[in-house]
Design a protein around this nucleic acid. Structure first.
Lengths: 198, 198
DNA sequence: TGCTTTTGAACGATTGTTCATTAATCAGGA
DNA sequence: TCCTGATTAATGAACAATCGTTCAAAAGCA
């Protein structure tokens, strides 16, 4: 619906989510009070309830938005396992490097979701893992990847890639391009695809 | 000092730590109340303060004990980079598989430590990472590992290995021996050490 | 004037922690 | 074996503070 009269919703709403994202990432969901979020926005606690029914939904919406953006922007896959794997690795690293707070929350706050909300986020996460596993199985079938258990390799790769967020910061010692190149080297080696000149 | 009269400290004390470990791992430090810990032990909240000065110290002691056990049991290193790396991988996987709760806390609750306590745990963690990096540099110098940045590779390997704790459970589809074998395959490949028959 | 947004107070519940009091356990002597 | 005195552990109430959430009233804008 179009903007209604006297409304600041389209200004305050995003600021509430941004404040919650920042504070949840820094201190954790359980340790952040609604009053702290309100103070970050510059508003009283009661005003937050114009933008979220409760604190739990605020967390869930942040995680859901993140996971849906991840799935929406993920490369579709060209069909060549080697190309698809490289694209996946590059995409994962760049997407995650751009959103350290969202990534942190998506991995750390799963246990603070209600069971129903947890199940919904978990389903999105599995969809993402399945995409990588499908690439690995295609390469396995084509004989270009030498791996035994595609599920384990998929999880190991994702864990390795997501680990960059514990240390990588834009503007640090290494550029994002260098990080992508180095991780692609490791992933390519780990799946048993020889070190080919490119 | 030897056991003093009228004391149950040596019984209740460990039970307090065990209850805190279990509940912190399940729900997170901030979401667990001292009353919840006391209920798990079967005691009133006030009694906990015979065994810890406060909640923060309870968390810190759990994390410190875990990290010190990790460092104490870590293999010393024989000198051969290939052997040392394989030993490190196997040790890491087995040690972590045995202690899912401790590992979970050690990685998730860092931000709930006071700055001083955080610095102390962080120092222990860095000591552990340095041990792996030293193995990698030795293999790099000896020409047996083909890697460029030993620091990144060390962090990537640790992230990959620690990731098993998100899915591995003793008694599941895969035995621990199978997991160790598969991860060693991936690590050996990732550091560019050829797939040799063993 | 009509509608939206924000305030600010209030609510019941829960938080970490303290402490006087009670209960339990022990060593040593009779 | 029983008693005594000493010592420790656990209770249960209390504390000030903070929690998520609600809502009537005030403020701001079209």
């Amino acid at each position: 619906m179009a903007r209604t009269t006297g409304s600041h919703s389209d200004i305050t709403g995003p600021r509430v989510r941004a404040a919650a994202l920042k504070l949840f990432a820094r201190s954790g969901y359980a340790a952040v009070s609604m009053r702290a979020i309100a103070a970050e926005v510059g508003v009283q606690a009661g005003a937050l309830y114009n933008y979220t029914p409760d604190k739990q939904t605020l967390l869930f919406d942040l995680m859901q938005s993140h996971m849906e953006a991840l799935l929406a922007q993920m490369p579709a896959g060209a069909g060549d396992p080697m190309v698809d794997l490289e694209d996946f690795v590059a995409f994962h690293l760049r997407f995650h490097a751009d959103r350290p707070d969202e990534v942190f929350i998506a991995y750390m706050e799963l246990r603070n979701l209600t069971p129903e909300n947890f199940a919904r986020i978990e389903a999105l996460r599995r969809t993402y893992e399945d995409r990588l596993e499908r690439i690995l199985r295609a390469g396995q079938a084509a004989g270009v990847f030498r791996i035994s258990d595609s599920k384990i390799v998929a999880l190991a790769i994702i864990a390795m890639l997501t680990g960059v967020n514990t240390w990588f910061r834009i503007g640090g010692r290494l550029s994002l391009d260098e990080v992508v190149a180095q991780y692609w080297d490791m992933v390519r080696s780990a799946v048993g695809a020889g070190t080919l000149p490119r």
